[in-house]
Design a protein around this nucleic acid. Structure first.
Length: 893
RNA sequence: GGGCGGUUAGCUCAGUUGGUAGAGCGUCUCGUUGACGUCGAGAAGGUCAGAGGUUCGAAUCCUCUACCGCCCACCA
């Protein structure tokens, strides 16, 4: 007999329990080549900072999978780590420096990177603590960081391999450029924001055309029209002189299908150097430009978003300033016809929100269409291969609906721009040969003198080329997703052929939010199938976004955010985990409120108190007894064991199908509504069986452990178990604990008690008032005799008479259950009028059901086509209802 | 513009091969019964968005409509 506190206090135990797990080595798998391991690479949080709910739900779900598999006896590995998140982190540090009025240029590259490292080290300490707070059972001895030496080597090796395969090339193309970050961005790193702008109608030689960006007129080289457009058809191929604010200039008219005849005047000015659509149009119409002798590319905006020197008096202005000035000048010249309000989508940087400036720049790209992966006689592009592994089912995406999204994205993938003009990140392993003079010149200002990097004299190599020539390292760093694309295998020691790599790769599950399916998941598939020729993971499980109570996105500005750490401090980790898992289905967003967390805190306390009761009722001696099915004595024992067995069975199915919410709910229901409300209550009477009481509880604790590891582990410890629960064996089905007859019997007792309770409540008989009851139990007389004490106590009876059968008892209320009858002599306690009304309503309800079932049974089609079992069940139900209805009439006063 | 998804109790959502609907929270009534008031007992509450179709039978499958949401593309 053990006495514990009345309420569970999470704060007192959680940190200690975590420490105990970690120091015991339970998080570290033992490599056993006879067994297939279960592996998850934790999506590495950005090294920028604090844990939010997105991380919390990720950690909760992954820890559930990990603990479940570990308890199955599978060697289980969960690798934690952090991502350097180049742009995000660099921006963050720049912001911090800005508070001290320092820019990165003040510090210089080297010093700035030292600052970033300091910041990252600090963040990592926080992140580690926060991951621990969530109870995550990951293997810290294998923790990795994308800028680790080993991972950096992996990145360089893959780059070199791609370079040798001619998959990587350096080229001048139009790119998304963020003038604030002064870097390129990948297509999917661009966000769009609706913005109220102006549409300027400009007189343009023989045309009038509409534009939102009059300042780009300085870079125009053509006017495009739709070849089907009768108005302009004859002008295609001709050259025109256009009056401009800096004097006249020449354009050629090109015909392009993409021009919308309905929009504006149907004629578009073309600025290939500063618009994606225009760039593509120029490429499609190369010959027209050539014929006209016009160079399509006229660059007018620089990397800082300012007008270039070729823009005369506008040179040096930002594009915005230039627009204002140029519109004024155009007005003066009388070439502005009208200005309209216009709303459209502005492209902005996903990291800093600054307006994107498309411009032409020399960058490194990955060719996604070049056939390079050998597949039998054929060769496949990385894009094709990545589509194939999902199509063939080698990788399964949960929920399935994201397959389509994935294919759609992959199929439309363009060459991936991987170079970033960011200081923080993996340097591109390319070296440029230069003479001494150029090198000196270059090094004075690498940012500005990039043009000196001659890629015809470039060498791709991890080490600096070692000879007498002068070499300059490529100043750029790689897109952060390049390195995270290697995450599943770079963390396992690749390119070294380590034991870890050989044993644990490919990983089992990749669990993450659907919002980074493209950013990360798709890139891991690309990079891994290309580099290793194998998939990175077998299953992708995508969770949804966490929203607030009203389904709104949580954000700082809206003030509706919930801080997981604050909730943990208030309620404990277990409730936070449960509230993030229950009610969530893969791929769907989920609402979270503090109420919900509080509700699960109550559940945790319920478990604590159920255990408290059990511990108080189990003697020293009983503790030592090992449960076996023959110890089940009473009907209640057999019922709860049968229920437990089906719980175990259903839970296992749910866990295998990744239905964690269902699994959690089912265990919740079992513990609260079956174990506590019935079995435990019954146990307070004559039929106490401490061994079963404890066995059922302990099995339930095991099932709950992946969901709520802390409280279950604490209780396990209190039960004086030697092993920690984290390393216990997961419950299996045991057919010997199925007692069909007894389980059904107890359900009948439960039903009778519920019906008496319900009637008492309907008739407003106070709980304190004890009443008499007579049960005609028929064949079940023995069962009801056995359960006499339970019925009296739980239905709050004074006297209970149990007979096999008997006469009607006049004036007593009748409850029926099957062929059983229960009479409650309540004559004096009832409001007759209300009671008559109630009975009439109930009888009407019953009649309705009877009618619909009879209709069904007299329907030829139903009888012919429905399964026999169903028909039999319906018939039985009908008979029962009819007899109950007949008996109900007796209750009419 | 292209694609995907949603619409079930007051709220948040389950519903697994089609067999007349479930949970949590909230609401109402009652209750200091030997673990728990972070509790217990009981109750009310739904034409499963609308219309049509397939079927003996539809929340579930098909078509259309309405409203909501997301992703992708981005038009000057």
């Amino acid at each position: 007999m053990i006495e514990i506190e009345k309420a569970y206090e999470a704060k007192k135990y959680e940190d200690k329990i975590y420490e105990k797990w970690e120091s015991s080595g339970a998080f570290k798998p033992k490599i056993d080549k006879k067994k297939k391991p279960f592996v998850i690479s934790m999506p590495p949080p950005n090294a920028t900072g604090v844990l939010h709910l997105g991380h919390a739900v990720m950690l909760a779900l992954e820890d559930i999978m990990i603990r479940y598999n570990r308890m199955q006896g599978t060697p289980t590995l969960w690798i934690p780590g952090t991502d350097h998140a180049s742009i995000a982190t660099q921006n963050k540090v720049e912001q911090l420096l800005a508070q001290k009025k320092i820019t990165k240029y003040d510090l210089g590259r080297e010093e700035f990177l030292k600052e970033v490292d300091k910041f990252v080290k600090n963040s990592q300490v926080n992140i580690r603590n926060q991951i621990r707070k969530m109870g995550s059972s990951c293997d810290w001895t294998r923790e990795r960081y994308t800028l680790d030496k080993g991972l950096t080597e992996a990145v360089q090796q893959v780059f070199v391999k791609m370079y040798k395969d001619d998959l990587i090339y350096r080229g001048s193309r139009i790119v998304n450029w963020c003038p604030r970050c002064e870097s390129t961005l990948a297509d999917d790193e661009v966000d769009y924001k609706e913005s109220g702008e102006k549409l300027y109608w400009i007189k343009y030689g023989p045309f009038t055309l509409a534009t939102t960006r009059p300042e780009t007129k300085l870079g125009d080289s053509a006017v495009a029209v739709n070849p089907k457009d009768k108005r302009y058809k004859d002008m295609i191929g001709k050259k025109y002189m256009i009056k401009g604010v800096l004097g006249d200039f020449e354009v050629v008219v090109i015909g392009d299908e993409s021009v919308d005849m309905e929009f504006g005047s149907g004629a578009v000015k073309v600025t290939p150097a500063h618009s994606f659509a225009d760039f593509e149009m120029a490429q499609r119409n190369k010959s027209a430009f050539k014929k006209a002798g016009i160079n399509p590319i006229k660059e007018i905006i620089d990397e800082k978003g300012r007008m270039k020197d070729n823009c005369g008096k506008y040179a040096g202005m930002t594009t915005k300033e230039c627009r204002r000035a140029i519109v004024e000048d155009m007005k003066e010249m009388g070439i502005i016809e009208k200005i309209e309000d216009y709303t459209h989508n502005l492209s902005i940087c996903y990291r800093c929100g600054y307006t994107i400036e498309p411009l032409i720049s020399k960058q490194w790209f990955v060719n996604v269409d070049k056939p390079v992966i050998k597949d039998g006689a054929k060769k496949k592009s990385i894009k094709e291969k990545s589509i194939e592994v999902v199509k063939k089912g080698e990788i399964e995406i949960i929920p399935e609906k994201f397959n389509k999204t994935y294919f759609n994205w992959m199929e439309n993938l363009h060459d991936w721009c991987i170079s970033r003009q960011i200081w923080f990140g993996h340097k591109i392993p390319v070296w440029y040969k230069m003479d001494e003079k150029s090198k000196k010149e270059y090094e004075k200002n690498p940012e500005k003198n990039r043009y000196l990097l001659n890629d015809k004299e470039a060498i791709c190599s991890i080490e600096k080329p070692d000879n007498k020539n002068h070499y300059v390292h490529d100043p750029d760093t790689l897109d952060t997703w390049f390195s995270s694309g290697l995450w599943t295998f770079s963390t396992l020691g690749w390119p070294d052929k380590t034991e870890d790599f050989k044993y644990f790769h490919p990983t089992s599950v990749l669990e993450t939010g659907y919002d980074i399916l493209f950013f990360w998941v798709a890139r891991m598939i690309i990079m891994t199938t290309y580099t290793l020729g194998e998939i990175p993971f077998k299953t992708v499980y995508l969770h949804g976004l966490i929203r607030d109570k009203n389904g709104k996105k949580m954000s700082k500005s809206a003030g509706n955010g919930i801080d997981p750490l604050e909730m943990i401090a208030k309620y404990g980790t277990d409730p936070v985990r449960l509230s993030l898992v229950i009610g969530g289905t893969p791929g769907n967003d989920m609402c979270l409120s503090e109420d919900k967390i509080e509700g699960y805190r109550n559940f945790i306390n319920k478990i604590w108190n159920a255990s408290r009761f059990a511990l108080m009722n189990v003697s020293e001696e009983d503790f030592k007894k090992k449960f076996n099915p023959s110890m089940a004595k009473s009907t209640a024992d057999k019922w709860i064991l049968t229920e437990l067995n089906s719980l175990v069975k259903a839970t296992n199915i749910d866990m295998e199908k990744y239905n964690f919410s269902e699994a959690g709910m089912r265990i919740y229901d079992f513990l609260w509504n079956k174990y506590c409300d019935w079995y435990l209550e019954i146990s307070k009477g004559d039929h106490k069986n401490p061994v079963v009481l404890l066995h059922v509880l302990k099995t339930t604790l095991k099932l709950l452990h992946p969901f709520i590891p802390f409280v279950t582990e604490k209780l396990w410890e209190l039960m004086e178990e030697k092993n920690m629960l984290i390393s216990e064996e997961w419950p299996k089905e045991d057919k010997k604990t199925i007692f069909k007859k007894e389980a059904k019997d107890l359900e009948e007792v439960r039903e009778i008690i519920s019906k008496i309770r319900s009637l008492r409540s309907e008739l407003k008989v106070e709980p304190a008032k004890k009443i008499n009851a007579i049960i005609y139990a028929g064949k079940q007389i023995k069962l009801f005799e056995e359960k006499r004490e339970v019925i009296i106590r739980m239905a709050r009876l004074e006297n209970l008479q149990i007979e096999e059968k008997g006469k009607k008892i006049e004036g007593a209320k009748l409850i029926t259950h099957g062929s059983m009858e229960v009479y409650l002599p309540l004559k004096d306690m009832i409001d007759t009028e209300k009671e008559t009304k109630r009975i009439k309503e109930e009888m009407a309800k019953k009649e309705n059901i009877i009618n619909s079932i009879s209709a069904k049974l007299s329907n030829e089609g139903f009888v012919k086509n429905a399964p026999k079992e169903l028909i039999a069940r319906e018939k039985e139900k009908l008979a029962e209802l009819k007899s109950e209805l007949a008996k109900m009439a007796q209750n009419m006063v």
